[in-house]
């Protein structure tokens, strides 16, 4: 198992990268949906929540067709690279982060929005306060996004190709070892993956608690 550590590293890099991307897209989207009234806002909220159940294999397949050399984005040369895996997982995680963050921000905005605005704060000026007030729920939202990405296998298998030492991550290794009949090894890798997931979540939560 000499290729074991790089696989763990790639799993972390891809899922953390995708989670960061999802947070960077999902939290601003949630803030806009919570704070700015516009026609059709309810429909967008419903759509974001509906995308919580986005099937990974379908995302992988559509992204594959887009990134394929025969597809419109083939020139990017992203297919079968870690970059494609990050994009695929970010697509899956963004609705999760956005939907959960929206719940928190909406509630806080109803609670404190008028007060903040009566102090003369614009929406943009109120945003940092709102984010700070919702910090703990936002942390949970981002962790839920991370949970989705680190455990995902369908999309990364299709767009990454499970190339040894390049796009092979923990989940695709577990699928591969299972198919080789190495069930004990697959199970051991599964335990490592769960351990990593727990460690990351616990670390983030501990940091959050420490800041209170």
């Amino acid at each position: 198992m000499e290729s074991f550590l790089p696989t763990v590293g790639l799993s972390l890099a891809v899922s953390l990268g995708a989670t960061a991307l999802a947070a960077a897209l999902g939290i601003p989207l949630a803030a806009v949906l919570a704070m700015v009234p516009f026609p059709g806002r309810r429909a967008v909220v419903v759509a974001v929540n509906a995308l919580l159940g986005l099937p990974p294999v379908v995302v992988g397949l559509v992204l594959y067709l887009l990134l394929s050399h025969a597809g419109p984005l083939g020139r990017l040369g992203l297919l079968f690279t870690p970059g494609a895996m990050v994009v695929a997982q970010a697509i899956l995680a963004t609705p999760i982060v956005a939907a959960l963050a929206h719940r928190a921000l909406e509630a806080r905005w109803v609670e404190f929005g008028r007060t903040l605005q009566s102090c003369g704060a614009s929406r943009l000026q109120a945003l940092p306060h709102l984010l700070a007030l919702s910090r703990r729920t936002l942390t949970t939202a981002v962790l839920a996004g991370f949970g989705r990405t680190v455990s995902e296998v369908g999309a990364v298998l299709i767009v990454g190709g499970n190339i040894a030492g390049y796009t092979r991550v923990m989940t695709t290794t577990i699928v591969l070892e299972t198919s080789k009949g190495n069930l004990e090894l697959a199970l051991a890798l599964g335990c490592v993956l769960i351990g990593i997931s727990v460690t990351v979540s616990a670390t983030v939560l501990a940091l959050g608690e420490g800041k209170r």
Binding site: G9, L12, A13, L16, G17, A20, P82, G83
Partner: peptide, 10 residues
């Protein structure tokens, strides 16, 4: 650190 890791992957 994540961005650095990604940049390194590329």
């Amino acid at each position: 650190a994540i961005l650095a890791a990604l940049a390194m992957l590329c």
